[in-house]
Design a protein around this nucleic acid. Structure first.
Length: 164
DNA sequence: GCCAACGTTGGC
DNA sequence: GCCAACGTTGGC
């Protein structure tokens, strides 16, 4: 069995929030229109990987929860829907340009870990993409030990080394 | 609302 | 293949 990988996935809470996912328990992560992000989903993500739910364009921005990848990547149907805001007229059904995956709710962190808090912990989180200047990628890999550190910062029940 | 940092597009 | 123009992201 392959080693579990860890991710960070952004969503604007005005569009889709951790509360929405908590209520629905599972959702389609549609609308990714960036090649790097798509390649992560298509080429590297695996079922049962864990991902942080990150609220972008929020006050404050930060990590608010954990979800689990529950599907392989498959073509995002919104790219073919002219009524969708994600419609891409250049994508062809024979060779879909954009992929998506399905995610399931795991937990809402007892305490949000804000972007500022991540920056304040840069010693423990060296190399974390989310705190790199100008980093806009909406799907990012997260190192396993960074994932554990951040779970601790958020008071996660998933973390055996939970801090108080 | 501003704007820095990217990513994409298209003329050449 | 270069690069200017344009569009988007996302923190502030």
């Amino acid at each position: 069995m392959a080693t579990r990988r860890y991710w960070l996935m952004k969503s604007e809470p005005d569009v889709y929030s951790i509360e929405d996912l908590k209520r629905e328990q599972r959702c389609y992560w549609e609308g990714i229109r960036n090649y790097q992000a798509r390649n992560f989903m298509r080429d590297a993500m695996q079922i049962d990987d864990l991902a942080f739910f990150y609220h972008s364009n929020a006050k404050p921005p930060g990590i608010v929860g954990v979800m689990r990848i529950v599907s392989e990547a498959y073509p995002d149907p919104t790219q073919f829907d002219p009524k969708s805001q994600y419609f891409d007229p250049k994508s062809e059904e024979k060779s879909p340009r954009w992929s998506m995956i399905d995610v399931a709710f795991v937990e809402q962190l007892p305490r949000q870990v804000t972007l500022n808090e991540l920056r304040d912990s840069e010693d423990e989180l060296q190399g974390l993409l989310a705190i790199r200047k100008g980093q806009r990628l909406s799907i990012q890999p997260v190192e396993a030990d960074h994932f554990q550190v951040i779970l601790g910062m958020g008071g996660s029940s998933l973390n055996p080394r939970r801090s108080s």
